[in-house]
Write a protein that binds this DNA or RNA. Sequence first.
DNA 1: CTAGTTGCAAAGAGTTTGCATGGCG
DNA 2: CGCCATGCAAACTCTTTGCAACTAG
Lengths: 133, 133
Amino acid sequence: MRGQYSTKQRDAITNFLKTTSDHVSASEIIAHLKEMNISVGSATVYRTLDKLEKDGLVRKMTIGDGGGACYQYISQAECHQHFHLKCLGCGKLIHLDCEFLEDMEKHILSHHGFTISTGKTVIYGKCEDCKDA
Amino acid sequence: MRGQYSTKQRDAITNFLKTTSDHVSASEIIAHLKEMNISVGSATVYRTLDKLEKDGLVRKMTIGDGGGACYQYISQAECHQHFHLKCLGCGKLIHLDCEFLEDMEKHILSHHGFTISTGKTVIYGKCEDCKDA
DNA sequence: CTAGTTGCAAAGAGTTTGCATGGCG
DNA sequence: CGCCATGCAAACTCTTTGCAACTAG
């Protein structure tokens, strides 16, 4: 299918994403690899993430403002609906699994002809703790 | 209240945002001002936008990946629910006014304790024309 | 051996900051 | 006049690209 080798760096990156199963930024990956004493240039990280995204193994999303993109491994287990709520107050990222959102997706598809990409969408707002701020 | 002068540049920026009433990027603003023969440094644009955002007059949101932030004037008229759909295919930005989304907001607030910031949220996906791509 | 990979360094885009000048009130 | 705003350039962050060296299969 697609020629690609398995290298120390690539394995380390995918492994980190797999085990973290949360959103990590490119710089977090680089920092992590440095801690593991795996030398890796940032270019490699970006190229690898690019490839992984094209292969549909990770999801790339822009969370927040200038902080850069975040990446998340796509596990089979979470192929159901899964939105993200990002609190503008404390910065917390909330994973939201809710049947209601499936209805929303259906509604937007049937009424507005728009197919939502659940994984890429980040809903901004204030969480319970920050709503008064 | 807050000391701030009215200058040619600031007026031009707010005016452009008001009349456009759509999302504009910082570079679009700079380009526009250049066309109007108003000399303005990019630093001024960013500082002005910062201030306008803090004053609650414009809304800042990150649309897409690396393209930079977009700004939108907040008019009184559009205080109703208004979400944005961004097509990952053609890049089109769709303004969505829909009662269904009010229900969604209510649901997320009552069931998940999260107050959605409608203006900041961008829903990603594929529009009708791009859904097969 | 060959094609995919890596690292470094340089190049970019977008945004922020320091500092001296200029302008509103 | 005082304070705020502006411009320019330098600094910064995140990301991409060119290129030569390297390595998995």
